[in-house]
Design a protein around this nucleic acid. Structure first.
Lengths: 219, 219
DNA sequence: AAGGTATTTTTTTGATCAAATGTCGCGGAT
DNA sequence: ATCCGCGACATTTGATCAAAAAAATACCTT
């Protein structure tokens, strides 16, 4: 009880932990999630676990499977298109709004995330790629200072994460044209529209990759 | 214990109950919500109440106030504009998608809701207006068969509900041009674009009403 | 007699509660 | 105005009960 200066309620810790597990593919689509299983793994009572699961469920990161079981959802093509539509409606706008709030230190931070992202790609490290890609976008959207839109975007990332993980894990992180560089270039000139466009391109790229896979098989 | 054929877990019952209370203005913006208070009112243990509150919180229908207290949020103008942007991005599209799935019995149902809505207006019954307006939209969006987009729309309604309630409660339900009639007319001819446009107009109307109030004062 | 199906038993998991614990805020005393 | 203690409330746990899945057993059909 000495290495944790931050005192956070258990249910929040569990929520964040689970959230990351989903976001970065530690839980595969279709995989069942049980309360008592997590109680064993995370070493907390069941109430905090219950709450975390409930919360994730209401965010669409988990779904009720049949009669009281929850699992990581497995979007089909139609659902993936919904996610795509929503993301493309919200995220470029977030990027545009964020642009005017980007300070030098923020840009530095974004560059750092992007560097780590590229390092992950070179290493073929899918988890690292997903993590840094998420950080990049999350940090940017956060700068928009828009609570409502950001929470929607976060929800959508939770839904998109597992599928992305599967596809990238299979086909590797290579051949991903780097739209982040373009976005950051536009940030430097404060051109919100261009930032939005770059982000849109970035998103479309990931979406297309999953979509092509879904056209052929269930993942 | 015989008049309840449906056996629903407590936490879901509580969730729905609370949800309705927020959606239809039984809880005013800014009003604090305590676990133990609800335990007394709803006659259940605190675990189900906790979960319901947690769920609503993650949907933005409630917010953490200060240090561990939750209350009904009170959007300022900036947040209201976010809600507006998101709703206008999502809901017309939902309406468009729904159009091709509307059968005769569905249309009948929508007409019924709209009739009750108009009756509520004539009666000056704000709660009834909100309830039937919600039913109308929810039923329509449900026909789109799009789980992801519908859940976002629901989230947004939860955020918009309390503010709408305040404004309508103050200025009455009069002078609301009926965009529903136009929407239903378009449905009959199967014109998705026109349905979408009508719904957009309907939403814009409600949004504007709140926005004008927020320009002047905090509600 | 073998295979598969129905039935029961066992085990796993979820739902709820009541009590123990800790924390924060408020109000009175200095 | 500041400090301290009281009370209200949130948080967490562990126990208990209920429900469902999984496993084991028995039964029937061919």
């Amino acid at each position: 009880m000495s290495e944790k200066p931050a005192k956070l309620p258990d249910h929040q810790r569990v929520y964040r932990k689970l959230r990351e597990m989903i976001l970065f593919g530690e839980l595969a689509p279709g995989q069942p999630v049980t309360i008592q299983g997590l109680v064993g793994v995370l070493d907390v009572g069941m109430t905090p676990v219950r709450e975390a699961i409930r919360r994730l469920t209401s965010e669409g990161a988990l779904i009720f499977k049949g009669n009281r079981r929850v699992s990581v959802p497995q979007p089909d093509l139609a659902q993936w298109n919904e996610i795509a539509f929503a993301r493309l409606s919200i995220e470029p706008e977030l990027a545009r709004l964020a642009t005017k709030n980007i300070g030098p230190s923020d840009l530095e931070r974004l560059v750092e995330y992007d560097d780590q992202l590229n390092a992950s790609i070179d290493r073929g490290d899918v988890r690292g790629y997903l993590e840094n890609n998420y950080r990049f976008h999350a940090y940017l959207y956060d700068l928009a200072g828009t609570e409502v839109l950001s929470s929607i975007a976060n929800m959508l990332w939770l839904r998109a994460g597992p599928s992305l993980r599967v596809v990238l894990g299979r086909y590797g992180t290579a051949n991903l044209p780097d739209k982040h560089a373009e976005a950051m270039d536009a940030m430097r000139s404060g051109d919100g529209d261009r930032v939005a466009a770059a982000v849109r391109g970035d998103i479309e790229q990931g979406i297309a990759q999953v979509r092509e896979t879904l056209l052929v098989e269930k993942i």
